[in-house]
Design a protein around this nucleic acid. Structure first.
Lengths: 200, 200
DNA sequence: GTATTCTGACTGACCAGTCAATCAATCATC
DNA sequence: GATGATTGATTGACTGGTCAGTCAGAATAC
């Protein structure tokens, strides 16, 4: 019934999930591979059976998550007619990703998208794809006359995605978990702030 | 003529400035103390004559710069009557700090304000002071009826300061230096975007 | 019986921080 | 204005600990 190497696949997953917790708790540079093995309840050497290096573990985590991100942005773009709804769907997806697995989002943001000297550099092209897709959403909204034309789309994308990441970063720095109400409030405020600004 | 320990003070400064370049180029975790000594043209041991540890060098750089930051925000708040002008003055100061010493700003942002597991945590209280001051500016503008009241001030501060940091991060990830025109354009767009938003 | 998963002791490189020794400047005394 | 004493700056070889990655073999599955 089970796939031939069910166990193997599971162990790989167990290691990945343990790595998320360890990276989130101690940071990539500060933790040791032995910590990951311990957290996974697995022998040290097994980590190197499934991954060729410590770096490859983080690369894998990032790639899996970022693929989902880009798919969700494309989906949001295709599904909704209005630009505001598109941005809302994107914000919702990212905030919900945090709700579902805060540790993973912490690792992705802290160790990859904001790590200008290490993993951020290696994954730069892929990270930029997200910005480009959002810029596209803004550009088309401007062409339709829904958005002002004096803010250039790449800059608008920076402001929008930047705000989302900034909100997550705030939560990441906080010690206690974030409650449901705050998650929902953030979704609303992010889009409101991006579309309408502060002045009345 | 010269102060008694002129040389001493200079060497300390030389080491700090070398550290900025090395941290910016290689990152705090990746570089060795020997790299800093080499860059400063100084013997390895001298670094430990002026600083008790590698960490203390980064702490010093952060503290010096952040003090200037907080002073500039307070100054902007005191100097200008309108909230928009206050935000413009703050954005100008930070963008100009980047213009003057991009390496230092890179180090502060990448290694401290966004390093959730290491220095960001130790300097958290001081970082929050900047957010709190900006939130105060927004709060008073709301009380005066200039800003909408349905965005809470701490969130607005997150969006504003977050956008500034996001713009710097974009430049940090880029390889080529940023031209004057782009710096000035960013100053304008940051405030425009924060105050007016995207929708027309 | 063989292929794969799994184990954990081991190694080799690396690097933060120490320290004993040298050097340079100022001061104190005659 | 020479001589020695004191203080602080400067040097770089060395140490002790850490840790990523290896490997030889045991266990398990098929």
């Amino acid at each position: 019934m089970a796939a031939p190497n069910q166990t193997a696949i599971d162990k790989r997953r167990v290691i990945l999930e343990a790595a998320v917790r360890v990276f989130a708790r101690q940071g990539f540079h500060t933790c040791r591979v032995a910590d990951i093995a311990d957290e996974a309840g697995v022998a040290y050497g097994l980590v190197y059976h499934y991954f060729s290096s410590k770096d490859e573990i983080l690369d894998t985590l990032f790639q899996e998550r970022w693929d989902a991100m880009l798919a969700a942005i494309a989906e949001a773009d295709a599904q909704h007619p209005s630009a505001r709804d598109k941005l809302q769907a994107i914000a919702d997806f990212i905030i919900d990703s945090y709700r579902y697995d805060p540790d993973l989002m912490k690792v992705i943001i802290v160790e990859v998208t904001r790590a200008a000297n290490t993993f951020g550099r290696t994954h730069l092209a892929r990270i930029r794809e997200a910005y480009d897709q959002i810029a596209g959403v803004v550009e088309r909204a401007q062409a339709e006359g829904l958005f002002r034309r004096d803010i250039d789309p790449p800059f608008a994308a920076l402001a929008f995605y930047g705000l989302v990441e900034q909100v997550l970063t705030r939560w990441i720095f906080e010690s206690e978990p974030v409650d449901e109400q705050e998650l929902e409030r953030a979704k609303r405020l992010i889009v409101e702030m991006t579309c309408l600004g502060l002045e009345r």
